[in-house]
């Protein structure tokens, strides 16, 4: 606020800038940082939209008149609709067990839950190929029983669940740990059942953290490329998610259509960022700490 009022009102209270850089250095550093981010991060995002609209709005819309685009959109929504709720249930169970109880081996368990984040996306897809592929561990058994996992919806869902596995749990575990068990204990001693206490005490306490993690989990689930690309088999109109459809269009030199479909995902990323920043700003105290800035 101080810069709105005239500087005469505040100078005495403002300490000498001994613990900061000079104004010129500051301006130069801000300039370099902002220019670097604009060039490396913002320009690519900008390029997606300009390329998508480079041949006019008609060419942009043409990309969505293709049935293959629609089947890709449908598949991506289906995969996210399975993977995200699965990870929500898992995250709630894991954070309940880990944050509300004391048992040995807890940090090992948290490390194992985090494991998918440190595995390359390609390797995440590959481990399912090794299990379910025709030459894989269960490959011949699956063929004998006519079960299709790879190059079909189950494989894509599995790979997506794998890469998004830690999202909800790693947000909720520190959040629940911070909140402790006192409120649940109070509810239980007042006669609430365990499930009732969870619904009326725990869930309201963690709702913003849960929403925050669902946002990030969903963005990753819909945008995952490497892992899904390995297990999908790239069957047009059948096993192509939106990112895979973008890849095919791009490799066919159909750049306008590729960027038009990609702009859907870019818009999703933007919405995710806006909502995420809003949650961080408005509900900083109700998210796992270390997020407020």
């Amino acid at each position: 606020m101080s810069e709105i009022f005239s500087p005469v009102a505040v100078p005495a209270t403002k300490p000498a800038q001994v613990a900061s850089e000079g104004a010129i250095t500051r301006a130069v550093l801000i300039g370099i940082a902002v220019a670097f981010l604009a060039l490396f991060l913002v320009l690519p995002l900008f390029a997606v939209f300009t390329q998508a609209l480079s041949k006019g709005i008609g060419a942009f819309l043409d990309a969505f008149r293709e049935p293959d685009a629609w089947s890709a959109i449908r598949l991506t929504l289906t995969v996210a609709a399975i993977a995200v709720p699965f990870n929500v249930v898992f995250g709630l169970a894991a954070s309940w067990a880990i944050a509300k109880f004391e048992f040995p081996g807890k940090s090992l368990l948290i490390t194992l839950i985090d494991l998918p984040f440190s595995v390359s996306p390609v390797v995440s897809g590959m481990i399912y190929v090794l299990l379910f592929g025709s030459q894989g561990l269960f490959g011949s058994w699956l063929i004998d029983h006519g079960i299709q996992i790879l190059f079909a919806l189950p494989g894509i869902v599995l790979a997506t669940v794998f890469v998004t596995f830690p999202f909800v749990a790693r947000e909720l575990i520190p959040l629940m740990q911070e909140q402790g068990t006192a409120e649940e204990e109070a509810a239980l001693t007042l006669g609430a059942s365990g499930l009732h206490a969870f619904r009326t005490v725990t869930l309201p306490n963690i709702r913003w953290g849960l929403l925050y993690s669902v946002l990030l989990c969903n963005a990753r689930a819909m945008g995952e490329f490497g892992a899904v690309s390995v297990v999908s088999g790239h069957i047009r109109g059948l096993t192509n998610t939106i990112p895979l459809h973008v890849e095919i269009l791009y490799n066919e030199y159909n750049f306008v259509a590729a960027f038009a479909v990609a702009s859907l995902l870019a818009a999703l990323a933007l919405i995710t960022l806006v909502l995420k920043s809003f949650l961080e700003w408005r509900f900083a105290g109700e998210l796992a700490h270390g997020r407020a800035h």
Partner: peptide, 30 residues
């Protein structure tokens, strides 16, 4: 430092987390 648009710049840092890799890939390539 405090400067106008700081929050926006701060949010933009997470762009590579949010933007699907294939989208970033074709954008960088173009």
């Amino acid at each position: 430092y405090r400067f106008p648009g700081r929050k926006l710049v701060d949010a933009a840092v997470d762009l590579p987390f949010a933007l699907p890799t294939a989208v970033a890939g074709i954008a960088l390539a173009s």
